[in-house]
Each structure stands twice: as structure tokens, then as C-alpha cells.
Design a protein around this nucleic acid. Structure first.
Length: 326
DNA sequence: TATTCGTGGTT
DNA sequence: TAACCAAGAAT
């Protein structure tokens, strides 16, 4: 047995090899966006997943619900909750008629429960300001709670076939690799990224919407963050990152440990309130997060106050709490 | 602009 | 197995 792999600091050597390979090759010309779009659309036609919110009979509301649930959440975890949600609340008005606590309860363990609260508030805004119909324009969509730049563009494109610039984490990574030759997009979106993405959007609206979903799908299934399947990629011969020999990334993600965080505490408290029908005493909640689990003695109180401030829970008097009933 | 906000599968 | 990552938004 030799020394453990990496014990002789292979980095400089590896970097030198990468550079030698780079100079020995002819420069890779910039990929023609028209060619990129054509290839990705052809790939999508053969490889698209059959997701319920992509079917022609899916309502704009169904598209919007899917986009909320898919924020920072994998497709596989969204499928069942989406079906249950749409079965119970097929239109915005049905959800708007319920207290927000029901939305929080229905959200279950999808994570980021403030999304449930915002989706509920968005449904009420749609009833109040848009006669119960999901608005068509990005501007009107963007004004809804929980709808940011990405979601507004996505709903306009996928629900109404509009020509928008849809830039999600998949598209950002795909274009970073293809055009910039880097393995990952910058941690925070830059203006240059939106310009680059806009340069790839076809003129025809329906084709633009197809490009949006197809480029996202390619990023999700082939050009993945870890272990990309370049052998299955229709853009492999155009890819700057592949041409450069797959150099490693430089961005270091802050490792966010979950154990013992405020997030975990909030999640545990909310889970208890979700799983029982009525009010819960503060003492019982405290038992859900005993001091020995806490990072600091104020954590329980801080989490409880935070949940209340966010509107995820409400006091009902006598030291009891419930999901919001309004 | 940098942080905060859940949860669970994958590597 | 610890770290990474997932169709972001709000502040």
C-alpha cells in the first residue's frame, strides 16, 4: 500500500496538466445560441419527464402551485403533495376560503413552510385583485406574495406560453459550463447571467417557453451539479467546461449544519402544531425542544417568537398556540 | 449584498 | 459519512 491518495498534494501537478491540455487544443469558439436551442429542444422531445404540471390540461393554478413547491425542493418530493393540494384546492378561490393554518398543515414536511403561507396569501390576492384567475403578466405575477423573478417568468411561460427569460439554478449552471467554462455559476446571480440567458431565448413565444423547460430539464437530468452525465449531453462538443478538461470549482459553499439550529427547532415546533388538531401549551412545545438539544438557552423562545412573527403560529391565550385560524 | 428560511435524498 | 444539493424569495 502506498501513501493515501492526495497525501503528496497532487493539486499543482493536476493544474499543470490541465493547462497543457488547454494550450494544446484549438480554441473552442463560442457556441451559437441557435444551435444550442435546437439541440436542447430535440433532446427534450426524447427525454422529458412526464410531470403532472407539464400536461396540457394542467391549469395555470396548477403550474403556479408546482412552482411554489419546487422552490429549493426536488421534483420527487413535490409529486405527492402537489396532487393532494390540487385535489383539495383545484382553484385559487378554494384555498383563499380557508384559514392560512390549513395551508401550513397541508404543506406537511415539504420544508420552508413560509412558502405555504405565501401561496395562501397569493391565492387571496388573486381572488381580490384578479377575479380568481392567475394573472398573465410577469408584472402582475411578480406582485404576488412569494413570487420572485424566477417564479413570475416560469408561470408566464409554462402556464400562458409567454416569451420570458427563465433563469433558475439549472440554467445558471448549464450556461456557466457551456459558455464560461466554469463548473458552477457564482453563488449569487449576476446581471451578466441574465443577459447571457436572454441571448438564448428564441423569438417565438412558444419556442421560448419550450426552451425554458427544456434547458431546466437538461440541467436537472444531465448537467447535474455533481457527477454530470456528459456522455448523454447534446451539447458536449460545444461545452467550454468539458473542453477545458472539467477544471474544479472555486466557490466553497458554507456548510450549513442542520442539527441544533434554529431551523431545526422551528421545524420541530411547527411539526407538533401541524400534527394535532387544537391548541398546544407552551410547556408542551418546550418539551419538544428540551434545553439539552438547544445550542443556547434562548433558542426555544427565539424560535417560538420567530414563528409567530412570520405568521406561522398564533397565540390563543392561556399560554397556548395554534396554526393561524384567519 | 449577505442572511435566513426546512427537509431529506445523494455522493 | 459528512457534506452537498434541490424549478428561490424576502429582507
Amino acid at each position: 500500500m502506498g501513501p493515501p491518495y492526495g497525501s503528496r498534494s497532487p493539486r499543482p501537478r493536476r493544474r499543470a496538466l490541465t493547462y497543457a491540455r488547454w494550450v494544446s487544443r484549438s480554441p473552442l469558439p463560442p457556441a451559437d445560441p441557435a444551435v444550442v436551442v435546437t439541440r436542447v429542444l430535440a433532446w427534450y422531445a426524447e427525454n422529458a419527464r412526464d410531470l403532472p404540471w407539464r400536461r396540457p390540461d394542467c391549469s395555470p393554478w396548477g403550474v403556479m402551485v408546482s412552482e411554489f413547491m419546487l422552490q429549493q425542493t426536488p421534483v420527487a418530493r413535490v409529486l405527492d403533495p402537489w396532487r393532494a393540494w390540487m385535489g383539495r384546492w383545484p382553484q385559487p378561490a378554494a384555498l383563499a376560503a380557508e384559514p392560512s393554518g390549513e395551508a401550513i398543515r397541508m404543506w406537511g414536511r415539504l420544508g420552508y413552510p413560509r412558502r405555504a403561507l405565501r401561496l395562501h396569501a397569493a391565492a387571496r390576492a388573486i381572488v381580490e385583485s384578479h377575479a380568481g384567475a392567475v394573472p398573465h403578466t410577469e408584472t402582475a405575477l411578480r406582485a404576488l406574495p412569494g413570487v420572485g423573478e424566477y417564479t413570475a417568468a416560469a408561470v408566464a411561460a409554462f402556464a400562458y406560453g409567454q416569451r420570458t427569460v427563465v433563469v433558475d439554478t439549472n440554467v445558471r449552471r448549464l450556461l456557466a459550463r457551456l459558455v464560461d467554462g466554469t463548473p458552477q455559476a457564482p453563488p449569487h446571480p449576476r446581471a451578466a447571467e441574465r443577459s447571457l440567458a436572454a441571448a438564448h431565448v428564441p423569438e417565438d413565444p412558444q419556442r421560448a417557453a419550450d426552451w425554458a423547460v427544456a434547458s431546466m430539464e437538461l440541467g436537472a437530468l444531465v448537467c447535474t451539479a455533481r457527477s454530470p452525465r456528459c456522455e448523454a449531453c447534446p451539447l458536449a462538443d460545444l461545452c467550454g467546461w468539458r473542453h477545458a478538461g472539467h477544471p474544479e470549482g472555486t466557490y466553497v459553499s458554507r456548510t450549513q449544519t442542520y442539527e441544533g439550529t434554529d431551523r431545526q427547532c422551528r421545524g420541530a415546533l411547527l411539526a407538533l402544531l401541524r400534527d394535532v388538531p387544537g391548541p398546544v401549551a407552551t410547556d408542551q412545545l418546550q418539551r419538544e425542544w428540551p434545553d439539552h438539544r438547544a445550542r443556547d438557552p434562548d433558542q426555544f423562545a427565539r424560535a417560538l417568537a420567530g414563528l409567530a412573527r412570520d405568521g406561522l403560529i398564533a397565540p390563543v391565550g392561556g399560554g397556548h398556540w395554534t396554526l393561524p385560524t384567519a
